[in-house]
Nucleic acid binder design. Structure first.
Lengths: 229, 229
DNA sequence: AATCCACCTTGACTTAGGTCAAACATCAGT
DNA sequence: ACTGATGTTTGACCTAAGTCAAGGTGGATT
């Protein structure tokens, strides 16, 4: 099988002794989901964790009224659902396939054994969780201390710095999903994009492409130095 | 020194081979802070992490206008500032002593070596970070999907379940700090406590003691099934 | 080209909770 | 007992962003 090939491409498993990939492959289970299908629900028992093999997965919280807050969106090679592996108990959030998705599932007990034997893997996992904590800190900061225009600006700048490196951005998710990621609703997002356009910070075609006109202005919005009129 | 004694009382270091405490002790540095003193600031280089030996520490984010959001409050035996040890870069938040506080500081390089040699320590650390991720998920959920009365109810129930096991609670922090922990401001907190009192969910003496009158009602508020009038 | 569907936008309205300002309470230290 | 620091409460006001409802857009399907 090319499962070994897939595994060796996962960042989490980089820098391991070669024969470990074989061991990892022996404990892994392949799973397949359609768009919109639930992978796990908040409160489920977490008896292992997942890595996206292809497609995309969102991890999110749901309010009593059904509003959703996306915690993260994961693409190929990214792990999710690790919390219960180490802290025990249930999954703290829901996970759902955003498109047709294949995932690799690593049963808990076998994986913990692997970690015990392999300090490199342990350190990779620690780095992974630490990065996630950093991102969560930043999300908490945004939700508590910034307004929606600031959060949106930060997201646009993040997009332009990582994915495209350019001034012409293409959103890789729907605006409704972006709203949920930013902790707001589509209507509010739409209005703020409109305001940013009239202030000539961006140019939006109403589709998924956005052009950054004033990077500095966006940075000021993101930091809270400036506000929209 | 009784540093070894202190170290063996730290949950993070439980379940390790006995001689490791000696090794840990050899890399640790003792530090001392007064109330209000900064331990580190967001953006500082993180060249190690800390464990509270005595006193209390708050870890928080600050907005551009100076509003603060507390991420966690740490007491004796609890570690903080671990993110940069494993994910590199700077501290993602500020840390400050809330009272006279002693901390143990673990320099990064030496600690990473220790982890590599000790799978138990690695797993303890993974459990620690996972628990923190769980708490952050819950904070994100609260900030994004719940109103202040819901967050406060959840906090009061949490207090009564963990610390006192009873119906008579004593806040261990000022109401201003509690507001910052819940992602609101003292005025709002004060008004909501007043409303909860008139609805006979709690009895508040205006000091730091609060009596739970209607646990079920609080639980409904916390889950979002009910709202204050 | 007509229909459908998912997605996006706009307008009118409401509201949770923040801001500002003032007064009040508590407690430690001189 | 007085002073000052620290924390709490209350009132009047404001605003960011949510709700509800209607309409618009564009791509895909038949």
């Amino acid at each position: 099988m090319d499962i070994i090939k897939q595994i060796s491409a996962i960042p989490l498993f980089q820098g391991l002794a070669a024969d470990y990939n074989q061991q990892i492959a022996s404990i892994v289970v392949n799973k397949h989901y359609q768009r919109g299908q639930t992978i796990f629900s908040e409160g489920d028992d977490g008896n292992g964790f997942y890595v996206v093999a292809s497609g995309r997965v969102k991890v999110f919280k749901l309010s009593h009224e059904g509003k959703e807050q996306i915690l993260h969106i994961l693409g190929t090679g990214e792990p999710f659902g690790e919390v219960p592996v180490f802290a025990g108990e249930h999954f703290p959030a829901h996970a759902e396939a955003m498109e047709e998705t294949r995932v690799l599932f690593f049963p808990r007990a076998a994986f913990v054994e692997l970690i015990k034997k392999n300090p490199s893997l342990a350190l990779n996992m620690l780095a992974m969780l630490s990065r996630r904590l950093r991102r969560f800190s930043s999300l908490i900061e945004d939700l508590s201390l910034k307004e929606v225009p600031g959060r949106l600006s930060a997201y646009l700048l993040y997009l332009s710095e990582t994915k495209s490196q350019s001034i012409n951005l293409t959103l890789d998710i729907s605006k409704a999903q972006l709203a949920s990621l930013l902790g707001t609703i589509p209507e509010t997002l739409s209005r703020i994009l409109a305001r940013m356009s009239t202030e000539e910070l961006i140019e939006s075609d109403g589709q998924r492409s956005i052009k950054i006109l004033d990077r500095h202005g966006l940075a000021e919005l993101a930091s809270g130095e400036r506000r929209l009129a």
